[in-house]
Structures are given as structure tokens and as C-alpha cells.
């Protein structure tokens, strides 16, 4: 794959819940190795958008092509196969709280029969080291701090070496220092694995560090797009306010 290849293409995507139109005519393209950051006020449709992109919510109309797959026409089995190439870091990290760190990491690999038990263990130790959580394999998620839980969520996402990662507010609820560490970790992952990503955030420091391009959503529509610097100088006051 070359760097200019489009990894994700969204065309005319719309979604409504009852009479409320949540997304309207969304068009997005993400290139190989690119991180696209989506910002917008609460309720602007950001989370619904990425849940549509990974198939957790079915849109009313539109097309989603990701890694050369027409997402909306995939059968369940094919969709599950595709999802092994996608990663999703939830806002709450969504760790399996009845499982240990090791079991959390092993879960996405449970249907991967190509690796032996020892190879899986090595992969788990390696990914934990990468996110700065070495030696925590036997701990329960409840024993970890907020920042560590986010790191573990990221480790669980990375264990399958995804080609595309969705981040849903990865720094929400963290202190500024831990937020910066998580943002740097996201940047490292993108540089090391050349993954493409979509990142939703309200944290402008995180956006500044990670974004190649940005989209601003308002009332389910794309209000503006560009890089961090151009959007920060936007003549539209409410967009400028997002950056303060």
C-alpha cells in the first residue's frame, strides 16, 4: 500500500434516531498512515459517526469503504474477520472487568489459531511493555489507575496489530500529564506501525499533537475541515472557542 492510498472512504452517510437527525451527508477520506481528528461540541454526532464506521450502528444511508471492504454489505462472519484488522479504543477503555490483564489481552486473540500459547504470551508481554505496563499481566483492571486502564485498552487494541484504529476520546477524564503521555503514545503507535486513525477528542493538546487533518462536526454535519493551525484561526467564533 502506498502512502496516498485511501484506507477509509465515507460517502453521503446519514443517520437518524426517530425524528432526530444525528448525522447528515457525511463525506470523509482517510489516507494510509494518516490520523484524522474529529472535534465538535457534545451531541454533534462524533461518537455515532465512529460507531457507524466500525459497524456498531447501521447508518440509514451512505457508503463506508474501509480497507477495500464495503462495510455495509458484509455478512456477520466477514465483518468479524475485518474487525480483526481494526482497533477501537473506547472512551471508558471498556476493559473486561471480570478478567485479568492477561485475559483481557488474550481475548481478541482467542480465535487466532496460528499462534502458539507461548507466542501469544510473548506478544502480550511485548505490547504491555510498549504501553508502559510491563509486569501487570496478573493484575485485575480494578487495580489499575485511570491512565493505566487507558494504556491497557490501547494495548488490547494493538495486540492484533490493526491497520486502522478508532479512538473515542482517549484522554477524557485524565490529568494533563497523563493525557499528554497517552497522546504521545498514540503518536508513537501511528509512527511505529504506520496505522491510519480516526480520533475523537475535546482535548486540543491531544489534537495538536496527533492530527494530520481535522474535521469539525456541528449538528451532524461537517462544518469545517483542515489542519490544526488553519482551524485554530477560523473566522467562525464557535470553532475558535473549541480551541480555547
Amino acid at each position: 500500500m502506498n502512502q496516498n492510498e485511501t484506507i477509509l472512504r465515507v460517502k453521503n452517510l446519514s443517520k437518524s434516531f426517530g425524528e432526530k437527525q444525528v448525522l447528515s451527508d457525511i463525506n470523509i477520506e482517510v489516507l494510509k498512515g494518516e490520523t484524522m481528528v474529529i472535534i465538535g461540541m457534545s451531541g454533534s454526532g462524533k461518537s455515532v459517526l465512529i460507531k457507524c464506521l466500525i459497524g456498531l450502528i447501521t447508518p440509514d444511508t451512505g457508503e463506508i469503504n474501509i480497507l477495500n471492504n464495503d462495510l455495509l454489505s458484509l455478512k456477520k462472519k466477514a465483518l468479524n474477520t475485518l474487525r480483526t484488522k481494526l482497533g477501537f479504543l473506547f472512551q471508558s477503555a471498556a476493559l473486561y472487568d471480570s478478567m485479568t490483564v492477561q485475559e483481557n489481552l488474550a481475548f481478541p486473540m482467542r480465535n487466532n489459531f496460528d499462534l502458539s500459547k507461548a507466542e501469544k504470551l510473548t506478544a502480550m508481554e511485548k505490547v504491555l511493555e510498549e504501553v508502559g505496563l510491563a509486569g501487570t499481566l496478573q493484575q485485575m483492571p480494578a487495580e489499575l489507575s485511570g491512565g493505566m486502564r487507558k494504556r491497557l485498552g490501547l494495548a488490547r487494541t494493538l495486540i492484533m496489530q490493526p491497520e486502522f484504529i478508532f479512538y473515542d476520546e482517549p484522554t477524557t477524564g485524565l490529568d494533563p500529564i497523563t493525557s499528554k503521555e497517552i497522546s504521545e503514545l498514540i503518536l508513537q503507535v501511528q509512527e511505529k506501525y504506520n496505522t491510519s486513525s480516526i480520533l475523537i477528542t475535546h482535548d486540543m493538546a491531544c489534537a495538536k499533537l496527533t492530527a494530520n487533518r481535522m474535521i469539525v462536526l456541528k449538528d451532524g454535519k461537517i462544518a469545517d475541515e483542515g489542519n490544526y493551525e488553519s482551524l485554530a484561526k477560523s473566522p467562525i467564533s464557535w470553532i475558535q472557542n473549541l480551541f480555547q
Partner: peptide
């Protein structure tokens, strides 16, 4: 247990990891 998993998005996390 399942209610709590639903509320904390653990069921969604299973789905996106390719597990039914």
C-alpha cells in the same frame, strides 16, 4: 453482570474485537 457489561461498553468491545 450482562447489564453492567452493556453499560460499560464491554459488549461493544467484544463485538469490535471480532467475537460474537
Amino acid at each position: 453482570e450482562l447489564g453492567s457489561m452493556n453499560v460499560t461498553e464491554q459488549i461493544d468491545a467484544m463485538e469490535v474485537s471480532g467475537t460474537n
